[in-house]
Design a protein around this nucleic acid. Sequence first.
DNA 1: ACATCTACCTGGAGGC
DNA 2: TGCCTCCAGGTAGATG
Length: 269
Amino acid sequence: MPELPEVETTRRGLQPHIEGLCIREIIVRNARLRWPIDANINQYCANQPLQHINRRGKYLLLGLPAGHIIIHLGMSGSLRMAHHSEPASLHDHVDIILDNDAAIRLRDPRRFGAVLWQDGDVNQHPLLAKLGPEPLDGDLATVLWQISRCNVPLKNLLMDSHRIVGIGNIYANEALFDARLSPFRKASTLDLAECNQLANSIRHILETAIIAGGSTLRDFVGVNNQPGYFQQTYAVYGRTGLDCPICHQAIVKTKQAQRSTFWCPECQQ
DNA sequence: ACATCTACCTGGAGGC
DNA sequence: TGCCTCCAGGTAGATG
């Protein structure tokens, strides 16, 4: 489930293999992702140099002279490098073929992902224009203070990309546990010290996951179908009934806004 | 304006 | 073994 750390790991994994190369063509085997892939995408991208690969929230941005290819991995998407002649499997929907015969291959079984084109300034794209700030850039405690002046539960706040980007269900659960804050608490009740505490936890959780992902970068250029990141180990996520690592009480699972919340009732009052 | 709910999709797990 | 049901999740768009 790609959240910010997995997307950033993907970006770092692809970067040395693609920057400076030319796109020969884009092969779309199945255009039916979250939004249909533009049938004319080759008109924008073929024979164009890949100048850089950036990230905005959970979106990967492939920079071409005239615009950007925007890729979102949804919840089951992964990118890896393959040789263009390597047979594609069932869910390998898109290949971006490069002029050295390599391919950036998108695999996405559940097709919640997206491959889009945006002319000119990529931040003008409707999906990017309204995104909140990056959690790892700037003063996160101040950002949290500013966005927390509202009446939503803390977990919903962290998962709302229009308020802050990059944090999905897994890392929202983990960050709130690390900060010893209840996922059900109303955001507006946080004081500055608690915003600071939560900022430290979010940074710690995300940076630790990125470092863990970095140790697996070699897998981006392999013959297997594994994405370039591994399942991390978590303190609360997916650990219903198991011991809290701090107080050893049982971790509880609750539905919150149609999503599973994992938390320790003792540590996160 | 703001908060919450629904829909999209499919592999895997569990029950019978 | 096979069929059925449920669950996971990001986010736009609809609804309250």
